[in-house]
Design a protein around this nucleic acid. Structure first.
Length: 423
RNA sequence: GGAAGGGUGGCCGAGCGGUCGAAGGCGCGGCGCUGGAAACGCCGUGUGUCCCUUUAGGGGCACCGAGGGUUCAAAUCCCUCCCCUUCCGCCA
């Protein structure tokens, strides 16, 4: 959630910035401002009446102890109460309206974010590695996987429907090796490993921004009111919700391996073949909870931490800075890391690293006490470190040989019992 | 799932219809004492929101797990939900 005070202070500036994301947003700001104004006016009235009620009530107590008649005052208070209830009802409904609108406003892009409509206007920041020169036509990962017997799409669909895949044998081993490899690297960098719940309550999803706006993308367990997490960002970022941390507790670095569950509503027909877009996929996530003055340098190091995994795996990639129109809901600034896919002749996203500034912290009420004793909102960051399934697919494609076998990256061999080839 | 007992400030813990934002203790900060420290003494120390004056401050309102209700008045009584503890049942 963005700061309502920002809207009160300079609505035109907020509108200009939000228009960079979506041209529909500025009109929402006008409605919020109007409601906010009315709500506060009523609040002031309610509170002054309530103040009068409180002092009359105290009076009743005093008089009763003295054995005096209080029926006159009691009648007066009852009248005030009715007045309060009517105003309060109006105030609450305005408050609800305001909050639900505020919850649907995305974060403000940072001033450094390139302006643009959609992903075509994202800006490449750097490239690492040279795509291997293959003297044969590269096969797509799903073809390699099926031929090697490590990806089984047919049986996956039998079990869970479309966008579910069974990973077997050396494929399962490779996936597990990748998870351990990634977690170990992050742990060495000071990230605390966490195994969180995979089912969470709705307010947890509200904290990170998936709800109320993106209900359609989530799997929900109706009977229990719980949702399957779409990313470990959700439980990790919410870990300290409602807490007031000490300044010296910051920064907090967290890492977690979890499966991610996404309905992928609205992506029909996209990436239908292979394991690029699945309803369930494994991901190692990085989350940082930091001092607001440090969050942009923390974003840079977060991206580097994710990049290092690809460097160690010797997979060519590039880093892209998302433009204002392509930015996710909660993010102020985002870098995507894209790895090279030979069969597609292009780079595909394996990580998205964002600084959400105080947008999530405000929803979660995660604060810290600064040196002056003031409570301030923390800044939160998250990034994939990395999407495991897509990394596996990238390994299959980049390390394939003409005979359809796949070499195992050197960095992973110790994690695979010394194996160097999947055949 | 069944039974019982609980959820109060950074922590422990009292309060069970009015004078309670809440005793007392611990912790923390300041001051005093001291050569310095311990001990001791004094003072201070929750969060949110709105308004007024605006470096600083002053006032109102709300918050004692969450949401409703009863009452002139609720931390205190009633209802619903959530969570924790113990016992029983079930179970990886």
């Amino acid at each position: 959630m963005i700061d309502i005070r920002l809207i009160r202070k300079d609505p035109e500036r907020v509108k200009t910035i939000l228009a960079l994301r979506d041209k529909e947003l500025p009109s929402l700001i006008d409605s919020i401002l109007e409601i906010d104004c009315r709500r506060r006016e009523i609040q002031a009235r309610v509170e002054s009446i309530r103040s009068a009620r409180n002092s009359l009530s105290r009076e009743v107590g005093k008089l009763k102890r003295e054995g005096k008649d209080t029926s006159e005052i009691e009648k007066k208070v009852r009248e005030l109460k009715e007045e309060i209830e009517a105003l309060e009802k109006e105030m609450d409904s305005l408050g609800d309206d305001q909050l639900s609108m505020m919850m649907r406003i995305p974060n403000l892009p940072h001033e450094s974010v390139p302006r643009g409509e959609d992903e075509n206007e994202n800006v490449e920041v750097r490239r690492w590695g040279e795509p291997r020169r293959l003297n044969f036509e590269p096969r797509p990962h799903y073809e390699l996987g099926e031929r090697l017997g490590i990806l089984d799409f047919e049986r996956g669909a039998r079990l869970g429907g479309s966008r579910f895949t069974v990973v077997k044998g050396d494929g399962a081993l490779l996936e597990r090796a990748l998870i351990n490899f990634m977690l170990d690297r992050h742990r060495e960098k000071g990230y605390i490993e966490v195994l969180p719940p995979h089912l969470v309550r709705s307010e947890i999803l509200e904290g990170t921004g998936q709800l109320p706006k993106f209900e359609e993308d989530l799997y929900r367990c109706e009977r229990d009111g719980l949702y399957l997490i779409p990313t470990a960002e959700v439980p990790l970022t919410n870990l300290f919700r409602g807490e007031i941390l000490k300044e010296e507790d910051l920064p907090i670095y967290l890492t977690s391996y979890t499966p991610c569950y996404r309905r992928e509503a609205g992506s029909h027909g996209k990436d239908i073949r292979g394991i690029i877009r699945q309803h369930q996929f494994n991901k190692v996530e990085l989350v940082k909870i930091v001092h607001p003055e440090k969050s942009y340098e923390e974003l840079e190091s977060l991206v580097r931490d994710a990049e290092e995994i690809l460097q160690l795996l010797e997979l060519p990639y590039r880093v892209v800075e998302l433009c204002t129109g392509d930015l996710g809901f909660s993010a102020s600034k985002t870098y995507d890391i894209e790895v090279w896919f030979p069969s597609q002749g292009r780079y595909r996203e394996v990580s998205s690293c964002s600084n959400c500034e105080d947008f999530q912290a405000r929803r979660m009420k995660t604060r810290f006490k600064d040196r002056e004793g003031r409570n301030r909102l923390v800044h939160t960051l998250n990034g994939s470190g990395l999407a495991v399934g897509r990394t596996l697919a990238a390994i299959l494609e980049n390390y394939q040989r003409e005979d359809g076998t796949v070499e195992i990256p050197k960095a992973l061999r110790d994690y695979m019992g010394g194996k160097s080839l999947i055949s």
